[in-house]
């Protein structure tokens, strides 16, 4: 029964963290903490590698004149701006006014605008969806219509009734479906983890 190195590492680390979760032992706790610190370093390494890969890809596009050169240039400029603002001599890091300006005046409004445009995009998608005469889209739109009615910000008795119905909808049907999905995902994850830990053939493919 041959096992891959990544699967073996997963099994060892998983068992260590699981046992440390249950048993109070300073030696185990130390080992688990060391593993967690390695995970932190690994995550930082992955982020760094992602940045390098991004620069390599778009820098290459820019130098070879292929793809969207303007987009690549903007991306690289944006990628360079934040480290420069956060690392120049005398910078206060993330609390530096230049970084705060980049985030507060550029990044946050850009992302918030994208989310705000979801409203328009959803309406357009709704029209396109209905153009293909799909029953699923119809059901989805009717459900969306019901939710919208429940969210109408009205006062008085009507508003109180809508709020009560909205609370019920959130707690019962929507909450139930959502929890069902989460439980399903958790069960599949647990089964897969058990297969890996029990060395079931093919589980680490």
């Amino acid at each position: 029964m041959r096992r891959s190195v990544p699967a073996t590492v997963v099994v060892v680390v998983g068992l260590l963290l699981l046992v440390n979760y249950i048993v109070i032992n300073p030696l185990l706790a130390g080992a688990a903490e060391a593993v967690l610190r390695l995970v932190v370093v690994l995550a930082a390494g992955a982020a760094l590698a992602g940045g390098v890969a991004l620069v390599h890809r778009h820098g290459g596009d820019l130098l070879r004149g292929r793809g969207d050169r303007l987009g690549s240039a903007v991306l690289l400029a944006g990628l360079a701006a934040v480290p420069i603002a956060g690392l120049y001599p005398g910078s206060q890091g993330v609390a530096d006014p230049a970084v705060r300006w980049l985030v507060g005046a550029l990044l946050a409004p850009l992302i918030a605008s994208l989310f705000a445009m979801l409203f328009v995009f959803l309406l357009l998608a709704m029209r396109e969806g209905m153009a293909i005469r799909s029953r699923q889209v119809t059901v989805m739109l009717l459900a969306a219509g019901v939710v919208i009615v429940l969210l109408l910000p009205l006062g008085g008795q009507i508003g109180a009734s809508l709020a009560t119905a909205a609370d019920w909808a959130m707690a019962v049907p929507i909450g139930g479906v959502f929890r069902g999905l989460l439980i399903g995902v958790a069960v599949v994850t647990a089964v897969h983890a058990a297969r890996v830990l029990l060395v079931v053939e093919g589980a680490d493919d």
Binding site: F119, L122, L123, M126, R127, G129, M130, R133, T138, L141, L142, A144, G145, I148, V149, L151, L152, P153
Partner: peptide, 17 residues
């Protein structure tokens, strides 16, 4: 905003046969 969305949905669903 909610009324606009509701109008879009109503129009879209009504046009569906």
């Amino acid at each position: 905003g909610l009324l606009i969305a509701l109008a879009f949905i109503g129009r879209a669903v009504a046009s569906h046969r």
